[in-house]
């Protein structure tokens, strides 16, 4: 990957964990995971349902306390400074984070308000967001009437409303068609182009190709971390699906 190396990359760390572990009773959902995510990067977290991706993301967002290990997000400690972290991250989960019984406009205003943005700022960003997602004619429609693809792009927009430097996306493309998925990824590329860091989980192995670097999780453990190209090259496979299988059988 000469292109990657040639690119001037500010190697500022956005997210860092060291032997981060989370147990639920006897079950270890995340087992000593250490990663470093750089600013401006799309960092993919791959794995099946139950591999520990969601637990990992929840610990980083301050929704779950780790059992062991250490971690920092935007330079703040995940144990002690979750308030500071919450102000600097955007989060969008696989379950829908928009209110179906609110209009598009009301949803945006609500999220703006929750982050304590001023009215003027909310109005300004709301208009920009509605334009970006292409929903000008539908601002006063109830969100439940929107197709899934639009909802997901809108949810991402809401998560970005307070202009956070780091965005966590938990299986954001679950269930949408390829067209909507690609336009969602276009939005992610636009976001990193602004210098933001995107941390994304997915169980679609082919989505790994969209990421700059991927880490693969299985049964709570990190089993690989590299660029998709290097992983494919290393295992001599043509796609990430086969890389995963090769990794497990290794």
């Amino acid at each position: 990957m000469t292109t990657n190396d040639a690119k001037p990359m500010t190697r500022q760390i956005s997210v860092k964990t060291e032997k981060l572990t989370r147990r639920f009773g006897k079950f270890t959902a995340v087992d000593r995971v250490s990663i470093e995510v750089y600013q401006g990067e799309i960092f993919g977290f791959l794995g099946a349902n139950g591999a520990g991706k969601t637990t990992m993301i929840r610990m980083l967002c301050g929704l779950l306390a780790p059992s062991e290990g250490s971690g920092s997000v935007a330079g703040y400690d995940i144990y002690r400074q979750s308030e500071a972290i919450k102000r600097r991250i955007g989060y969008m989960s696989q379950k829908f984070s928009l209110y179906d019984d609110l209009t598009i406009s009301e949803n945006i205003e609500f999220y703006g308000g929750v982050y304590g943005l001023s009215r003027a700022l909310i109005r300004e960003r709301k208009e920009a967001l509605i334009r970006q997602v292409g929903l000008e004619a539908f601002a006063d429609k109830l969100t439940r009437e929107l197709p899934l693809g639009f909802k997901q792009r809108l949810a991402l927009g809401c998560a970005l409303l307070h202009d956070p430097p780091i965005i966590f996306l938990d299986e954001p493309t679950s269930g949408v068609d390829p067209e909507a998925r690609r336009s969602f990824w276009d939005l992610i590329y636009q976001t990193v182009a602004l210098g933001k860091t995107v941390f994304v989980t997915t169980h679609f192995m082919d989505e790994a190709e969209y990421c700059h670097r991927v880490s693969i999780m299985r049964e709570g453990k990190l089993i690989a971390l590299d660029t998709p190209a290097k992983l494919k090259q290393h295992y001599g496979k043509s796609n990430m699906q086969d890389v995963f299988v090769a990794l497990v059988k290794e």
């Binding site: 990957m1 000469t2 292109t3 990657n4 040639a6 690119k7 799309i42 690609r182 990824w185 276009d186 590329y189 182009a193 190709e209 969209y210 990421c211 700059h212 660029t227 998709p228 190209a229």
Partner: peptide, 28 residues
């Protein structure tokens, strides 16, 4: 396609009439 700056490359190809579609895949 690979490029030094893949986003700029995309903008370039998008503007060409011969192009049907473009899609970013990480650095490609």
């Amino acid at each position: 396609l690979e490029a030094k700056d893949v986003r700029r490359l995309r903008d370039f190809f998008r503007s060409l009439p011969e192009v049907q579609s473009t899609q970013l895949f990480g650095d490609a």
